[in-house]
């Protein structure tokens, strides 16, 4: 027996759901979706569950993550119910459900709260710099370690527990029996999807976007590795220096293109941008750009006299690491891969 909750539809609108109530269940969206299969059919089922507000069914479902938002469903929807954006808003909502701190949900729903969070982190960085009397060497030293510690802490205290919660919602709570060996055997799925987003190639005419995304992921991970472990800003190794330049250029060029698309709104996927979408691309862009300029200032030997530039980079870095990575859109990267993994696990156990 399912109890209908029409209030859920109103709540979902705060996560970016647009007009999905107008759905009259024709199923055109499911018919045109190139990723939907008879076994895993969506988006109509997800639209229906959202309209009825059957939250338990939605929470245990992995289907929102199986969609890579080509937007064909929205284009073909006769009721302009926008199933594509509904799937996107469900991903945001699921993110907030997986997050044990509840901060994800608050930041998704409230732009003022997000701005406050950004302002507070900026003040923190400036206060810290003032405390260190704006000594550039100490600040860079700190910045280097901050990155390592932040990554470790965010992963241990936020992301890992959240993935465990996701696992609880989709595998444990629905009482799906999974053997240990299945978990081990399926791990390949996790790795492949995390680094390649292979599934999104199944969307029609998606090769360019897939490729852009792919080099962005590798560029981002490589830049992270270069700054944290190869210590790019202090390195004298010419190869490391050039590698860092290339990586940061890849990041800001690709994200610049992404931002342009969101402004032009020329594809279904770009027509509706929530603040969380903007934060993600802008901050990634700023990360690449400021890192590039900082290293350039070092090479031109003008960073000493322009230490504000490093402070700017550090601020962007702190905001990225403390707001966007644990509570923002960055998590989709993680949840998507785990969704593919859990999906494989579920199918193998069926």
């Amino acid at each position: 027996m399912a109890n209908i909750d029409p209030k859920f539809g109103e709540a979902l609108k705060e996560y970016g759901g647009v007009n999905f109530n107008a759905c009259y269940n024709c199923g055109n969206c499911t018919a045109v979706c190139s990723l939907s299969t008879p076994e895993d059919s969506f988006p109509r089922e997800m639209v229906r569950l959202s309209v009825l507000g059957l939250q338990d069914d939605l929470k245990s479902s992995l289907k929102p993550w199986l969609c890579y938002y080509c937007g064909e469903c929205t284009t073909h929807c006769p009721q302009t119910a926008n199933p594509g954006e509904l799937m996107m808003s469900l991903r945001r909502w699921l993110t907030s459900q997986y997050d044990w701190t509840g901060l994800s949900g608050l930041l998704y729903k409230s732009l003022p709260l997000s701005i406050i969070a950004f302002v507070l982190t900026t003040i923190g960085v400036i206060a810290f710099a003032a405390y260190e009397s704006f000594n550039l060497e100490t600040i860079i030293h700190f910045g280097h370690y901050f990155e390592m510690i932040a990554i470790g802490a965010v992963f241990t205290f936020i992301l890992l527990p959240n993935i465990i919660r996701m696992w609880w919602f989709v595998i444990l709570k629905p009482k799906i029996q999974v053997s240990f060996s299945t978990y081990v055997k399926s791990i390949r799925e996790l790795i492949v999807h995390m680094f390649t987003q292979k599934r999104s190639l199944g969307c029609d005419d998606n090769q360019v976007r897939w490729f852009e995304h792919l080099i962005l992921v590798f560029g981002y991970l490589a830049l992270l590795f270069t700054t944290v472990f190869l210590d790019w800003f202090s390195s004298q190794n010419l190869f490391v220096i050039i590698l860092g330049y290339v990586e940061s250029v890849v990041i800001f060029v690709v994200t610049f293109d992404f931002m342009g698309s969101r402004i032009k709104k020329n594809k279904e996927i770009n027509k509706f941008s929530q603040p969380s979408d903007w934060f993600f691309v802008i901050w990634l862009f700023l990360m690449g750009l400021t890192a590039f300029i900082v290293r350039a200032f070092i090479d031109l030997d003008i960073l000493e006299t322009n230490s504000w530039m490093y402070l700017l980079h550090l601020t962007v870095l702190v905001q990225w690491a403390l707001i966007i990575v644990p509570f923002g859109k960055w998590t989709h990267f993680l949840y998507r891969s785990f969704a593919m993994y859990f999906d494989k696990v579920k199918k193998m156990s069926a």
Partner: peptide
């Protein structure tokens, strides 16, 4: 099965869009 034929179909749309459950 809803039979809001002709122009009346727009009512069905409005009602769905306002969050009525069918």
């Amino acid at each position: 099965g809803i039979r809001t034929y002709g122009k009346q179909e727009s009512l069905y749309y409005d009602s769905s869009a306002q969050g009525d459950i069918y």
